[in-house]
Design a binder for these strands. Structure first.
Length: 388
DNA sequence: GTTCTAGAAC
DNA sequence: GTTCTAGAAC
């Protein structure tokens, strides 16, 4: 019975093939769909229409199918060209959950709120991910691809340490890696913005020079420089007036929804309910630094084995915009009792956003807190401060 | 595959 | 009391 249920879920990709609204691109042999739980900002699947469970069922005869799937992968990447250059990984999961051959097309930022578990990272950043070229070569040379043992699979899923795919950073904690990946992503977004601005200025300069040469001074239209959000641009993919769309492309174009090319890039905004780091501790701390001791007197803890990241982080999930508006604030920052003196109580009420501490966190000084004289002073000091 | 949660572990 | 984990449910 359980097995039947699992089989039902494993068939989800097959069922998606029955609804053309899921298709970004469709051909006679495969379709491109958006990943349900994208593990990067841009994550697609090229799903074969033919009944293959995974790459282990393919032989040399199926190389043309792989060629075709790669062609569709390139088409969907091509659709992202209105955005600044991004690197994509293209390949197969060696041990896939889904009952249908599917090729992953995923940007290499791995910055996503759906990246929650060690296995998510390792499924793309270990031998569990077989790059397309390797799969193609193995089929060409040896005619088949072997599946891996359950034991190897489980070992690779939980492989540690976690190594950044963009630099030498290494950590054992997924939260640290996520924070680190965000820094990469933000840096690249900033670079892209800068480049856009420079390009725009260069264009304006060159146009002005042309105008001068032609002795026809003309005012340039005052167009704001497009910086953010990229998602806004993403609503109009494949804008190429010189090239008419094929029927398949037209169909894919029609089925584009608001964020079809990926989620909005300003996701890290604190107000954004989809922010993957919302309700998690600050990640401006130095990477690889051992976790700071919790405030409050708690005895030394024995080192744990395995990955640790905050509970809320692990359970973070998609929330519709506005979801939090009528919600209880996060207990970590908004618990009823004061955890430590905040800006409001020490500097005249000019606190930042609720739950956000301004400046360095004062250290606990138990002798001060429990010294009646100091306590009295603290209580007396408040009205004076707030009235000023 | 993801989400949820009871109960173990701390 | 809080955090983590395994397993059930979907």
């Amino acid at each position: 019975m359980e097995a039947d249920k699992l089989a039902y879920f494993r068939d989800e990709l097959k069922r998606k093939l029955n609804d053309k609204r899921n298709f970004l691109i469709e051909s006679d042999r495969a379709v491109v769909i958006k990943a349900d739980y994208p593990k990067s900002q841009y994550h697609f699947r090229v799903v074969a229409k033919e009944e293959f469970r995974d790459i282990t069922q393919l032989t040399e005869e199926h190389l043309p199918l792989l060629d075709h799937m790669m062609d569709l992968a390139n088409q969907i990447i091509e659709k992202q060209k209105h955005l600044e250059s991004r690197n994509f990984l293209i390949g197969f999961k060696v041990n896939t959950f889904w009952n249908r051959l599917n090729l992953h097309v995923i940007s290499d930022d791995f910055y996503s709120m759906a990246m929650k578990r060690l296995s998510h990272w390792n499924s793309f950043n270990s031998e569990l991910f077989m790059p397309f070229q390797i799969a193609y070569m193995m089929l060409s040379v040896q005619g088949s691809i072997e599946s891996i043992s359950e034991q190897s699979y489980n070992k690779l899923r939980n492989k540690m340490p976690l190594r950044c795919n963009q630099c030498e950073f290494v950590t054992n904690m997924l939260l640290d890696l996520k924070a680190h990946l965000y820094q990469h992503w933000r840096l690249k977004e900033d670079e892209r913005d800068q480049k856009k601005k420079v390009d725009k200025i260069m264009k304006m300069i060159s146009e002005t020079k042309l105008d001068e040469a032609e002795a026809k001074p003309e005012l340039l239209p005052e167009e704001p420089i497009q910086t953010q959000p990229v998602a806004a641009i993403a609503q109009y993919p494949n804008e190429n007036p010189g090239k008419p769309l094929t029927p398949q492309q037209q169909q894919a174009q029609n089925s584009y929804d608001k964020y079809i090319n990926g989620p909005p890039v300003n996701m890290m905004n604190q107000k954004n309910p989809n922010n993957p780091f919302r309700n998690t501790p600050h990640f401006d701390r130095q990477p690889q630094k051992p976790p700071q001791p919790r405030f409050g007197p708690r005895g030394p803890m024995a080192p744990r084995t395995g990955p640790r990241f905050p509970h809320k982080q692990q359970h973070n999930r998609f929330r519709a915009p506005g979801f939090n508006e009528c919600r209880q604030p996060h207990p970590l920052y908004h618990s009823g009792r004061q955890q430590f003196p905040n800006a409001a109580s020490v500097s005249g009420g000019q606190a930042g956003p609720p739950g956000q501490q301004q400046g360095a966190r004062p250290k606990w000084n138990l002798s001060k807190i429990f010294n009646p004289q100091n306590r009295q002073n603290a209580v007396q000091a408040q009205p004076t401060n707030s009235s000023s």
